[in-house]
């Protein structure tokens, strides 16, 4: 599908330092409604930091974040959620002692979705959690907890969804299944940023990828092109393969 011309999120020269370490060092990219953008790069290249800054976990130390025409850099997470940004976590973070249903109810009650949020029962059904609705989230296995993270995010009716390694640890059947769901979400108009190590999965779902290294983007385009760029090969495989 063709993404809208106007980006919903524009990241410009984003900087995030931890002490003397520049986790993000001038990262720039944009994503539009209906588009699935992949963020790829070696470990430590700043992918998760980028997600954390966009979702308000960290305040940026430089650069601008423009979402829906407004500057959102440094805004508190819950306010970003109310504006329509949500995410999942690399290591899922459900409310362990609450039931699956209650986990989602909190998001339904406090998410302040601008449009009526999806029905709880539908969401649980779609992501294979309906049977587990009244069990504590602690009883779920890791991939079920990831789905619960996703359902909780969707309950706030996001317009920009950040998925941090959602696919890691899923089996091939589950991968195909979740890929279908993510594509359907994008078709419904969500902008989606996917951080992922599984290149097959990235190839299957993304419209475009940003390759990151050392806190900034070194390539933007389709994955098929990216794998032929010497600089990209170099950061993934090491210098001697790049020639």
């Amino acid at each position: 599908m063709s993404p809208d011309a106007k980006p919903i999120l524009t990241v410009n020269g984003l900087v995030k330092r931890f002490g003397g370490f520049h986790a993000l060092d001038g990262l720039s990219f944009h994503v539009s409604s209906g588009e699935i953008l992949g963020l790829v790069g070696p470990n430590g290249s700043g992918k998760t930091t980028a997600i954390n800054v966009i979702s308000g976990l960290y305040a940026p130390d430089g650069g601008t974040l423009t979402y829906d025409g407004a500057s959102i850099g440094g805004m508190a997470s819950h306010k970003l959620v109310h504006r329509g940004i949500n995410r999942t976590f690399q290591i899922p973070k459900p409310f362990l002692s609450l039931t699956v249903r209650q986990n989602v109810e909190v998001a339904l009650a406090y998410g302040r979705a601008e449009v009526a949020p999806p029905a709880l029962s539908d969401l649980l059904e779609q992501y294979h959690l309906a049977e587990l609705a009244d069990r504590p989230a602690a009883d779920l296995n890791s991939s079920q907890q990831k789905m619960l993270d996703l359902v909780r995010a969707l309950a706030t009716r996001p317009r920009l969804l950040l998925l941090d390694e959602l696919a890691a640890g899923l089996n091939p059947t589950e991968l195909d299944w979740i890929a279908g769901h993510i594509k359907a979400l994008a078709q419904s108009g969500l902008a989606i940023i996917v951080v992922e190590h599984l290149m097959g999965f990235i190839e299957q779902i993304t419209d475009r990828v940003i390759v990151m290294n050392a806190g900034k983007e070194i390539f933007e385009g389709t994955l098929a092109v990216a794998v032929k760029v010497p600089q990209v090969i170099e950061v993934f495989l090491g210098g001697e393969h790049g020639a």
Partner: peptide, 9 residues
């Protein structure tokens, strides 16, 4: 952190 992502202040 998750509570904030559920929209809770």
């Amino acid at each position: 952190v998750s509570a904030a992502m559920a929209g809770v202040n």
